[in-house]
Design a protein around this nucleic acid. Structure first.
Lengths: 259, 259
DNA sequence: ATAATAACAGAACATTCGTTCGATGTCAAG
DNA sequence: CTTGACATCGAACGAATGTTCTGTTATTAT
């Protein structure tokens, strides 16, 4: 029961089929029949195509209507690699042809692509000896400089951006959390955590903020550094551990222009 | 019975069929079969539908592919045809009609507001003892799972995504570069680097890949770990330092569910 | 190696679907 | 009324198409 081929992405044939699906629909205005997929994808048997279509549906790439000829719907729009949004839209517009349905489809394609970006406010900086500047629940930021754009696809599923904020790390104090000076930490407001989650905690007895993996074991708290070469901290009194938020993501923008 | 085809415009049934065509396509992602048009248009015989479809094709409203199931394409925007009721609505629909310019304008407006997103291919994994899997310049389409969405605003200015690729870090071997197992490293193809840039280098004498800050000093190369607590590597012969690419960004998605 | 699983092939089968054809009904003009 | 073009219907046929079944061949794990 090793990890399946999920994370690795799609196999050559799965990709090919999706490509055919998108191409065919764009060219003909209707989806291909299974035997037509055979031809274009260079697969000799209809059952094999059926085999892969079932997989793709399972994975959520397409939707099928049983017993219906050409009953295939592409759920995720095809976008060319390393192509900015404008190109994606150009492709969609191209696909649109001169039909109302096409226009709507193009809009939908674009909407999906665009909608996957969240704007997250940068609440401030985080340093070891300072309390966390947690933003108020209602925020109405309009300062572009204090926002980060993050693709929703990078965040956990279902994350709508509520309660999310970003902190800029200052200094090397978080180095044991594999977080370095200048890093951007995306966090989610939280007062408690489950075991295994990385949290920002305020240790009231030590008077410092730190990022650690959180574990509650036999009534005491274990704070595990992300860096496996470093030792964990054990705290017998859970009340001194004040959880400020869960770490969702860390972004490091490597400054390309030094000197 | 009902009036026959007027001199101007379409008969009731012709309109109805076009409406069904547009509606069905929008809802199902593929055109209706003739018998499905029968149902939705309240026509009892397939031959009648066929009869009208031929007319509509003759008039240029649709295009048919003979012998192909669901082989129907809508050619004209349906709004133009279906609802001649309100002039205001018609005008609006007219204004919103498909034009390449309009589409581009919409894209631009949207792009400015939301910001551009780049799709970057995940070329593979990087580990200390293995060579870098640099992707070919042209990459096949369509594998959302092997792509990262990154907001253009996070990348260096002017970066259009060309030559960008992502690597998934495997193992702890990059820990001195403050990069940890599972991190996503966004890189740009490069054969040389300027001082201060973080690069992926293949050290041919040690037979390993590593991420370090690059400095060329007095004819020798200094590879400085990002982690300030660690010592740099000095290499007297620059020829053994093969630069694979520059590190542009590091993304760490903190997994919320650890047992 | 051996077993288990995934990937693939080809054929057979059951529907779905496009097409055709004959028959009937409607309506306006001769 | 008759005629003929138009509109409609129902059925039937064959091609197109989705599905399933039985194998065979790679691939991977044990």
């Amino acid at each position: 029961m090793m990890a399946r081929q999920r994370r690795k992405g799609l196999s050559e044939r799965q990709r090919r089929i999706l490509e055919v699906l998108d191409n065919f629909q764009r060219r003909n205005g209707y989806p291909p029949a299974i035997r037509e997929i055979c031809e274009h994808a260079h697969i000799s048997s209809t059952s094999v195509v059926n085999y892969y279509l079932d997989q793709l549906e399972e994975m959520g790439y397409i939707e099928r209507d049983q017993g219906v000829s050409r009953g295939i719907r592409l759920l995720k729009p095809a976008v060319e690699v390393i192509s900015p949004l404008s190109n994606a839209f150009a492709a969609a517009a191209n696909a649109a042809r001169v039909s109302a349905a096409g226009v709507r489809q193009a809009a939908q394609t674009l909407g999906q692509t665009v909608g996957e970006m969240l704007q997250i406010p940068i609440a401030g900086r985080i340093a070891a000896g300072l309390p966390l500047p947690i933003p108020s629940t209602d925020f109405s930021y309009f300062d572009p400089d204090s926002m980060v754009d993050v693709a929703a696809s990078l965040l956990p599923r279902g994350e709508k951006g509520e309660g999310l904020f970003a902190l800029e790390v200052q200094g090397d104090s978080m180095i044991d959390a594999m977080v370095y000076d200048g890093d951007l930490v995306i966090m989610k407001r939280a007062n408690e955590a489950r075991n295994g989650e990385m949290v920002a905690v305020w240790l009231s007895d030590r008077d410092e903020t730190t990022l650690k993996y959180f574990y509650l074991e036999k009534g005491r708290v274990r704070l595990q550094p992300a860096n496996p070469t470093m030792q964990p901290i054990y705290i017998d009194d859970p009340s001194v551990v004040e959880i400020q938020g869960k770490v969702v993501m860390v972004i490091r923008q490597v400054k390309g222009l030094a000197a």
